Simulated assay, not measured.
Amino acid sequence: MRDLGIEKAILAPWFAEEKESPYVLVRVSDEQAAAWADVLRMPVRRCYIDDALLDERAAVTGRPKSELVAAKLPDRGSTMAGDFGEILVFLYHAAVEPGCEPIGPKKWRLKQDRTKPAPHSDVVQFVLPHWPEASPDDRILCSEVKTKATNGVSTPISSAIADCEKDRTSRLAKTLVWLKERALHENLGTTTVAHLERFIQATDHPEAQKHFRAVAVVCGSIVDEELADTPDEEPSDHTVVVIAVPELKQRYEEVFDAVHESVTETGGGA
C-alpha cells in the first residue's frame, strides 16, 4: 500500500468483521465512511495514475494535471460504482491479510476505455513473504466484486459467487498472462514480470496457495435484504464477503469529487 500512500494501520479498523461464517460480514461505520473523501483521494487517484507518470505527462503535453486525471477517471454511474467497489476490495485485502503486505497491479491504470470496467479478474494480489525466493507460503488473492449502491433488481452476492467460479476455473490464469503482456511494455508499479511468472509458471516453483473471494459491496440501507442471498453453508473453495457501506453512492461520489478537486498544477500531483 506504500505506493498508494496509505498504511495498513489506517485500513484495518474499516474492515472489522462482524460475522465470519458461513460468510464474512463487514459493516463500515458512518464515521469511517464519512472520512473517505479526505483519506482516499490520493490513494484512489494513484490507482489510475501514479505521481511520476502524472508529472511526466504534464511536462510532455503541457496540459494541466486536472485534465490528465479527468481523462483517467470514470464518469458518475455504474462504472464509477464498480471501480470504487474493486478499489475498496484491493484495500480490504491489504487490511485483513496477516503478516506480509500483498502487492498487486492497479488494473484501473490499464483500462483501454475509462468509461468501462477493467477486463478480466477484478482484483488480483500476491503475498510473497520470502521474495525473491518462491516458497510454499506464497499466496495469490483473487476477488470477484459486485457493487450495489441503490435499490434495484441486481443480486450482487449471488452474481459475485457465480462469477467467482469463472476465476477459479479459467479466468485467473488468463488474467495473469494478460498482466504479464502488459508488464512487458508498461510499468505496473510494485508488480513485476518476475512476480507474475512465479504464478504463471507454477510447475517451476513450490505450489502456491490460492484464495478466492466473492465480494459484494452494498449500501448499508439495503444490505439486510441482500443478506438473504448468502449461502447457508460455508463454501469449500471460496469465501463470500459482504461489505456494507453507509450511503455508498454518496461516499464514492465524494471520493471521486475529492480526487478531481485535489489535483494541483505544481509538485507531485494531487
Rank of each mutant, 00 (worst) to 15 (best):
M1R: 09
M1C: 13
D3M: 09
D3V: 14
G5D: 05
I6S: 02
K8E: 13
P13V: 03
P13H: 13
E17V: 10
Y23Q: 04
V24G: 03
V26G: 01
D30M: 00
E31M: 02
A35D: 07
W36P: 02
A37L: 02
A37M: 02
D38T: 11
V39H: 08
R41E: 12
R41M: 08
M42D: 13
V44A: 03
R45E: 10
R46K: 15
R46M: 08
C47W: 12
I49M: 13
D50Y: 03
L53I: 12
D55W: 07
E56C: 12
A58L: 04
R63V: 11
R63H: 09
L68D: 03
A70K: 09
A71D: 15
S78C: 02
T79I: 09
M80K: 04
G82Q: 05
L88E: 00
V89Q: 02
V89R: 01
V89T: 11
F90H: 15
Y92H: 14
H93E: 12
A94F: 01
A94C: 14
A95M: 06
P98S: 07
G99N: 12
G99S: 11
E101T: 11
I103V: 14
P105D: 05
L110A: 09
Q112L: 12
D113K: 14
D113S: 11
E133T: 08
E133F: 12
E133C: 03
I140F: 12
V145G: 01
V145S: 03
T147S: 06
A149Y: 01
G152F: 06
T155H: 14
P156W: 04
S158K: 14
A160E: 05
I161R: 07
A162Q: 14
A162E: 11
C164H: 01
E165W: 09
A173G: 06
A173H: 13
A173Q: 15
K174D: 14
L176N: 03
V177S: 07
R182F: 06
L184D: 10
E186G: 03
E186P: 02
N187D: 15
T191C: 11
T192N: 08
V193T: 10
H195F: 06
L196Y: 05
E197K: 10
R198N: 09
I200W: 01
A202D: 12
T203A: 13
Q209T: 11
Q209D: 06
F212S: 10
R213K: 15
G220A: 02
V223G: 00
D224C: 06
L227G: 03
L227E: 04
A228Q: 11
T230A: 15
P231W: 14
D232S: 08
D232T: 13
E233S: 14
P235W: 12
S236W: 11
V242S: 06
I243Y: 01
P246D: 05
L248K: 00
K249Q: 09
Q250G: 04
E253W: 10
E253V: 11
F256Y: 15
A258K: 09
V259W: 00
H260L: 14
H260T: 07
S262D: 07
V263F: 05
E265M: 14
T266W: 10
T266R: 13
G269D: 08
A270F: 12
